[in-house]
Simulated assay, not measured.
Amino acid sequence: MARRFQGKVAVVTASSEGIGFDIAERFGLEGASVLISCRKQRNVEEAVEKLKAKGINSVHGVVCHVANPEHRKNLIHQTLEKFGKIDVVVSNAGTNLSAEPFMKIPESIHDNAWENVKSAILILQEAAPHLNKGSSVILVSSVAGDDPLPPTPIHGVTKTALLGLTKALAKEMAPHTRVNCIAPKFLPTPFAEATIKKETNWESMEEATMHERVGTISEVAAAAAFLASDDGYYTTGETWMLSIGVHARL
């Protein structure tokens, strides 16, 4: 595997499992020192041990609920204390899926759902003063952001906002930091487990793609690694739709 992140430091939010974990793993295998985080100490510890078992020794874990101001400050403080700098930030944290239609969504659900956008901005406010020249930011959105459909419309619309945020941040953070977005199609992750149990027909999802298969989390991680590395230097303000052709048919 390439060593594109040798000597670099990457912060990945919501990275104890699923897409965040695989992104952290990919960065670590390519040489990065990795700061992972999630809401529960036990999950953080288990994720750190899993990464170390894969030969990634330069890894540190921190409890962080990105909606908590003190947690955000501590996340960046711990990264700088442990590794001394920041080269990459991946904003992967997201709220739970809600299957309520818009005309029935209570205000409390709106407050929770829009943390998808708010937390991405606030974590970067903490990190930005410490980002090195040539640094990179990756926001994790979803194909649903381009076409917010049932069963989780509010989730899709918050992901739509991340597409616009990517463009806005790319302009604001240039020329020293690139900002890009990855937007994967629905994947079998722990985060999506509730929806998968209720209604997902994987066979029909495979048939909807041009290559008749769903993607994998490791493929999403590979895309994030490309955009965050120097190989993706010519790319900023862009969203990479990862759907094996489903998005092209929309």
Rank of each mutant, 00 (worst) to 15 (best):
S243T: 08
L250C: 04
G31L: 08
T209H: 04
H155D: 12
I36D: 06
P69N: 07
M241Q: 06
R249Y: 00
L124K: 08
H60G: 00
M103P: 05
T152H: 04
H110K: 02
L80W: 01
I36T: 10
A47T: 02
E126P: 08
I19G: 12
E17G: 03
T152S: 11
F5M: 13
S16P: 11
K171H: 07
V12F: 11
A2E: 04
V59Q: 06
T189G: 04
I123E: 02
K171I: 11
K104E: 15
K73M: 10
L169Y: 10
A14M: 03
A93S: 11
A228P: 15
T209I: 08
A2I: 05
G156E: 01
I182C: 15
L139K: 08
W114K: 08
V137H: 12
A99S: 11
V89G: 10
T189F: 02
K185I: 03
F27C: 14
N116S: 03
I23R: 14
I182A: 15
S58W: 05
E238H: 11
P188L: 01
M103I: 06
S229L: 13
R213M: 14
L131P: 09
L97C: 07
P153K: 07
N57A: 06
E207S: 15
S141Y: 02
T200M: 13
D146G: 14
E203M: 00
T216Y: 12
P148D: 02
R213N: 10
Q6H: 09
I56K: 10
K133W: 02
M205I: 00
A192I: 03
A170F: 12
K159H: 02
N96M: 06
S119R: 02
D147H: 11
I154L: 14
G156V: 00
K40E: 13
V88N: 14
L75I: 01
G18S: 04
S135G: 15
S16Q: 07
H71Q: 03
T209Y: 02
K104L: 13
G84M: 06
E212C: 06
A67R: 12
